[in-house]
Structures are given as structure tokens and as C-alpha cells.
Nucleic acid binder design. Structure first.
Lengths: 175, 175
DNA sequence: GCTGTTGGTTCAATGACCGAACCGACGATG
DNA sequence: CATCGTCGGTTCGGTCATTGAACCAACAGC
């Protein structure tokens, strides 16, 4: 999108949202960010996205305040991209979309989301059936579901097989 | 999308979902369908979408079982497009996306969603705070919010100013 | 000095989207 | 019965976005 052409005239918050996150790859970049991917190269190998497109998407997301570019070491200068509060607010959308995809399309559970405090699997509204509360993103634990392949090719997918909290940086182990 | 190129290898229900509904215009067509738009021409004037793209999207959505093409009169033969159960299952996603757009981007409430039974405004999980239940799509009433313009140009937008239930066909009054 | 890693940019080719024009089936009008 | 208008499309040339490969710069380590 980012054409503003017609979406802008829609008078609809869904259209406004799609202006910002509706382009190809954008939501997958955000999904990876929730899973703890932060570095350019990790997005690259995990998504198989063209470099130019990744650059463009990260720049757009940064400009729109959904991600933040952060220097994590000088010399050599290295930056990482992390979700801002605005980006984190997309979690319910991600969950709803993922739940729809699983129920209506794949029929296989690829990932499980649990309440880190009590280990209970979350409902599709991110509520914990045991605690009766909506679980904040930082208390959500992701682990591979029964349908996920056990030995993926790329190192990022391999690192994501370990259970971990959302947003916590993924740890790529050396070859 | 519909390229299947890389999304297919993602092992992720979000990616699968985006394969199907991630293309430009697709989610806006579905949004209109929730609002009761059913006919080719009404989608056309309300969205300002190119005709060829609308045809392609409706065909794809029909093939994927998200919408259904239904003959509503013979002579002249006229069809309408309505959401199937699979399409209706997208409602939580639409709500989540719309809520994010409103809270994080537009800051203006363009539409209000109420529980038709009791008139209470719904939360962003489609729950009725008064009744304490998740409200099914057919019991949701849409009405224009404070931010919506009162005299839109196209007849479909004008017809949508009347409060109505989701999925109930929109009534276009003659010029 | 050479090589490898990270984080990019540039470029030609392909594919998607756009807007305008056209088309066929039919009803209504005169 | 000729013409006009509506509805639901298809076709087509031009433009814009995406793709994949190549290139580049900064730096670390050997």
C-alpha cells in the first residue's frame, strides 16, 4: 500500500491500519519481532525476504513508530529493531489472525501460547482460562506445537524451537 | 500474494492466513461484506477499487470458501456475494485490527458496535460488558460514530449511516 | 593484506495494480 | 422495434511494486 491512493478516503480505522501494516511481508516482520527476532540478518534468513524489501519495511515501521531502531554496540556499529508499545498493541490482531488461520486453514497447531505464570494454554483472546485475566504480552510463553517440524533448515527457526517468552531476544547458537 | 513463493514455507498459521486474505483490497472487501454490502456494483462504488481487481478478489474469496456467490434473481441473472462461516470467523480479526487502528492511528471513533439485545457498546474482544458474554456476529449492531462524516458522496456510504446489524443487506435508497 | 560478517544499496526483469474502454444480457422507454 | 440505461463483468496499455542477484562499506580477526 503506502499509496494512500484510495485507502485514505475510506473513513475507516481498518483501512488506516492496512495503510500502515497491510503491505506484503510487513505482518510477518512484526510476527518475527514478537518471537524475539531483532537483527536484520535474522529477519532475512528466517523470512526469505528480498533485502531491499526488508530494508524498506523496517524503515517504514520505524517511521510509523511501530518499531524502533536501537544501537546495541558501537564498533562495528550494529543496530537492532524492536517493537514499540504501538507495535506490541498489535498482539491481539496477530493472535486473532493466527487463530483463524489454524482453525479455518491449516488445522494443525504449530505453536502453543501459554501463560508463563501458571502454564495454562491461552484462549484466542489471550485470556488465561485458569487465572481469568487477559495476559500481557510479556507474560506469554511460546513453544512449538505438535505440527511444527523438529529440524528446520535455518538457524533462526532452530533457535525458536526452544520455549521462550514473547519479545525476549532469540538466541542463535553458533554452527 | 497468491504467489505461494515464500509464505508457503513459513510453517505459520499467520502466514497461511495472509496467503489467503493478505492481498491489497481483500480485507476491505470482507469488511464491506460484514457491513452488508453484497453486490458487485456496491463494492465498486464504496471501495473505489478497479473493476478487474474486484473481480479477481471476489473470485479468489469464493474459491477459498470465504464468500459464496449466490443467484438472487433470474432474468436478468444477478448474483450476490455473502460471507460463509469461514468468512464470518474473521470477525475477531477485523475487530482487533480496527481497534488498533483507532487507538494507535486515527484516534477518532468512526463506528460504534453494540450488543443488539441490550444496546451496550462492545469491548474490543466483542464481549458485552453488561451481559458478560461474547456476542455472536449476528447480534452486533453497527452505527456511525462521532467521527464519521454525515453526508458522504456515494450512496453506499449514505446507506451505511443507518444503524443496522452486521451481515444484514444494506439498503440503497434510490436517488 | 586478506577474509568473513553485518547491514545495507542499486539495478534489470517480472509481476501486480490502475483506469479507461469495451461488451453482453436484459428491462424500460418511446 | 430501436434506443437507452443498468449490472456485472473482461481486455488492454501504462505504471508501480517486488524480486533476486550483484555490489558496496565498515569493521574484526588472522
Amino acid at each position: 500500500m503506502a499509496l494512500g491512493k484510495d485507502y485514505a478516503t475510506q473513513e475507516c480505522s481498518i483501512a488506516s491500519a492496512l495503510e500502515v501494516i497491510g503491505e506484503r511481508w510487513t505482518l510477518l516482520v512484526i510476527r518475527d519481532a514478537f518471537y524475539g527476532v531483532r537483527r536484520y540478518n535474522d529477519f532475512l534468513v528466517h523470512l526469505g525476504i528480498p533485502r531491499a524489501v526488508l530494508s524498506a519495511r523496517l524503515r517504514a515501521l520505524t517511521e510509523q513508530g511501530i518499531m524502533e531502531k536501537r544501537r546495541y554496540q558501537e564498533s562495528p556499529p550494529r543496530d537492532e529493531y524492536v517493537l514499540t508499545d504501538r507495535g506490541i498493541a498489535l498482539w491481539p490482531t496477530m493472535r486473532a489472525l493466527g487463530a483463524w488461520g489454524r482453525e479455518q486453514l491449516t488445522q494443525v497447531q504449530l505453536r502453543v501460547f501459554r501463560h508463563a505464570d501458571c502454564g495454562t494454554e491461552l484462549g484466542s483472546y489471550n485470556e488465561c482460562p485458569a487465572c481469568g485475566t487477559i495476559v500481557p504480552v510479556s507474560d506469554v510463553e511460546v513453544l512449538p506445537g505438535p505440527g511444527l517440524s523438529r529440524d528446520p533448515a535455518d538457524p533462526v527457526s532452530r533457535a525458536l524451537l526452544k520455549p521462550k517468552r514473547l519479545l525476549q531476544p532469540v538466541v542463535i547458537d553458533p554452527v
